[in-house]
Design a protein around this nucleic acid. Structure first.
Lengths: 197, 197
DNA sequence: GCGATTACAATGCACTCGCATCGTAAAATG
DNA sequence: CATTTTACGATGCGAGTGCATTGTAATCGC
């Protein structure tokens, strides 16, 4: 083996460039040459670390999910189910540059998932986990008397998630401000929880 | 003027083919040659009716919005605000082949709107109208005593719309069945309205 | 009938794409 | 020191892209 090289570090360096391009100009603008230029490396090097463009894209999507997942996990020490749910949802919404970038790329991958199997499989796999987690939190809140017991925790979790997903769109297009987004989330949580935030 | 030709009919014929391709294989698969082949015409003819590909795409998006708008308008004779809102929202969700196709294409255009100005402008322009309409209906229901008076009709309208938008995604990916989608909408309306559907 | 205009069809062009191929420098291994 | 393996860089290829150009048939006003 020649040249001591950190394989994973190189791969992350490459997909970082990829994600910057995807956020700035969309997934359609992601080409091997563009990524190489953005990362400051040669096209041959990219081919060395990713057998195909699709594999590179899937690695990028996995990386993106991991980033968001880490931040949501970091919010898990919230003092109440409501505080955690609020933090977890706001983590998905484009409220600052980093989250805006993630939301843009996530939407691009979502759209691609409609016609491509690989990213669709990944999303399909992640969804029950996410919604299940929300449902657990709501159920816990119900047992604490913080949410009406006769609400359906599963459906409330779906509504919570889909509202967050849908809320990202007008926010990205520029029709809703960050304040509007946060206010809407809090309004919805006010309706769901008996106890204030 | 030679050859009596219905200009608009030709344009609709072309964008019908375009929309079929976009629904089947995504917006990325839409090329002049593909559209020509799908429509059974020559590439030259397409160039004759659309100066540029972007104009053709924008015409297709306008056409798509018009279709959905017509169906929503047709639901306007519903007997109650709740019935209308339910019909209007279900019209946006992928519950049959036609709506599934529209939702797929709509998502593709939404994703493109993040990086392209023209479709983004169109969406930005349509959004306040749609949400305003929802808000009016909720306000009317409040005056009829069918919705709690202390709810914020504007925010409820936003939540309704974003939930519908977000609900389309797992439905398209195949994670939620049509029954799940309808049940979720009805559940949410049950929480919003005092009077049953 | 005749020039003008419209409605196409066919072809070509410059460009970009993912990927394969080839060559080479360097370091670990024997 | 020789060999093998890794890590690239450079180049080229075939396919596909949007669009411009050119040619031609048809039908209108005159």
């Amino acid at each position: 083996m020649p040249k001591i090289v950190d394989h994973e570090a190189r791969r992350r360096h490459i997909v970082d460039a990829l994600l910057r391009i995807a956020s700035r100009d969309g997934l359609d603008a992601v080409s091997l040459r563009e990524v190489a230029a953005e990362a400051g490396v040669s096209m041959g090097m990219i081919q060395h670390y990713f057998a195909t463009k699709d594999r590179m894209l899937m690695f990028a999507l996995t990386q993106l999910n991991a980033r968001i997942g880490e931040r949501v996990a970091a919010a898990m020490d919230a003092p109440s189910p409501r505080a955690f749910l609020r933090a977890a949802i706001l983590e998905l919404l484009p409220l600052d540059d980093e989250r805006r970038s993630e939301a843009r790329i996530g939407l691009a991958f979502l759209a691609r998932s409609v016609v491509a199997d690989e990213p669709a499989d990944l999303l399909r796999q992640a969804l029950p986990y996410v919604i299940g987690f929300y449902a657990e939190q709501i159920r816990a809140a119900q047992e604490l008397g913080q949410v009406h017991a006769d609400l359906d925790s599963r459906i409330e979790a779906v509504i919570l998630y889909t509202m967050a997903q849908g809320l990202a769109n007008p926010a990205l297009i520029g029709h809703l401000s960050s304040d509007d987004v946060v206010a809407t989330v809090d309004y919805h949580l006010d309706r769901l929880f008996l106890t204030p935030g």
